[in-house]
Design a protein around this nucleic acid. Structure first.
Lengths: 232, 232
DNA sequence: CGTCAGATTGATCTGTGTCAAACCCAGTGG
DNA sequence: CCACTGGGTTTGACACAGATCAATCTGACG
């Protein structure tokens, strides 16, 4: 599965970690990454699956992943998208539980794997690191809480606007206002939490209202202000 | 608002904390609670409100609270219920952000308030404490993720069964199988994430199917196994 | 008693999901 | 070079879970 490509060495990973953990002393990273490994994944591969035992956490060196749960009838619910510098898998390490999400690459990715023990030791050893981990966990927690309310209360139309803006914020826009991230309709609907057909109909609606324009998977945001209004 | 009642002294709060933070050294608690204060709340009072600045976190010494978000049209979405020994408010302290939830007492409560600085210092000072805080944050994160999927994918009927079982698990049952916690229909519907009328109709449905029995707000679980099945 | 919040039931409307069919387009192999 | 295939996309028709609105009922409490 994993194909031979030019992999960054650990020192490269250290600089990536430094962007995510800004207040952690240089010396910590060497210890944290002492037993780390770097692996390349092709688009569409699983990093780990729900309910599996995860032996460590992952830093996304490059690429994009989706983090999702699978419902009874196999329907995916995307919890969040991971981008360069993002950390995932730590929850199941900390809790010593099976993973509650699956992670799949949406593009070719390079991942740095840190054994669970290294992570726990770093938290124990370095208060600064522990603090940053708390920051990450608490940010995700706030996002999750907000999303619970949104899914429970907002109509799909509002959630779609919201997700488009979220993706724009996280991954940026081209000069012409197009999302740099081109999800399939299926993934987009699994993120919004609706049926693919409903999503497509709402996209057409948005097109008619000159809120967006589409070409294939490309989506250009034409009226961000009005989208914000719709997102509520 | 706060009425005079016999308040536990700090040493009592320490024993409550000890139950929540099992692996933290005795000496830590004294420092953590050096500037803590104990307050009694009557049923129906707000501890803090969404978007407000919270200056510390709270340990629920006794009583029950609901932790919820408020949607555009004022509709509440209960994220979770807090019971004796539960900690809340730490997210906004850690992130130095306004609260993303409101907390309101569902019964008379006694709360121990720990200033933000004390909390952060304890995390920095004691790896064991930092670890336990990570445990708490990560547990909530896992719960939140699961709940996102459930709300997005499961029909109300399944979620109702799930919430009934959740309440049974968290707060226990009387000998006759009745939930010890008696929420109003409104609160229950805000927890399940549906309209009050829909909730009531489903409760009647459950009654007809001999899954539960009700008398006023009391709900007796008659067939836990079948409820589990329905919850999926 | 009267009152008022909460609980219940009924009637109706509608946002979304589901099913089915058609379409588009890129890649494959004959 | 072109038919064939298959994944993803789009549109239409239809059904239904669940929301909303309105009316009545209950029970606790002053």
């Amino acid at each position: 599965m994993k194909e031979e490509v030019a992999l960054p060495d650990i020192s490269r990973c250290i600089s990536k970690f430094k962007q995510t953990f800004k207040h952690v002393a240089e010396a910590e990273f060497a210890k944290l990454l002492a037993d780390a490994t770097v692996t390349a994944y092709k688009k569409g591969e699983f990093v780990y699956e729900e309910n599996s035992r995860v032996k460590g956490c992952y830093l996304l060196y490059s690429g994009i992943v989706k983090i999702f749960q699978t419902g009874n009838e196999g329907k995916e619910q995307i919890i969040r998208l991971g981008k360069e510098g993002d950390l995932f898998g730590f929850r199941s390490v900390i809790r010593e539980e099976p993973a509650c999400t699956s992670v799949e690459t949406l593009a070719d990715c390079i991942l740095c794997h840190v054994p669970g023990r290294s992570l726990v030791e770093a938290i124990t050893r370095s208060p600064a690191f522990a603090n940053e981990m708390m920051q990450i966990a608490c940010r995700e927690l706030g996002d999750a809480n907000r999303y619970i309310k949104d899914i429970a209360q907002k109509p799909v139309r509002a959630r779609l606007a919201e997700i488009l803006l979220l993706i724009a914020g996280d991954f940026g826009l081209e000069k012409d206002g197009a999302l740099t991230l081109n999800l399939t309709r299926g993934d987009l609907s699994n993120f919004v939490g609706t049926a693919t057909e409903t999503l497509i109909r709402l996209l057409s609606e948005f097109k008619n209202e000159r809120l967006i324009a589409t070409r294939g998977r490309r989506i250009r945001l034409l009226d961000v202000d009005r989208l914000r209004l719709i997102a509520g």
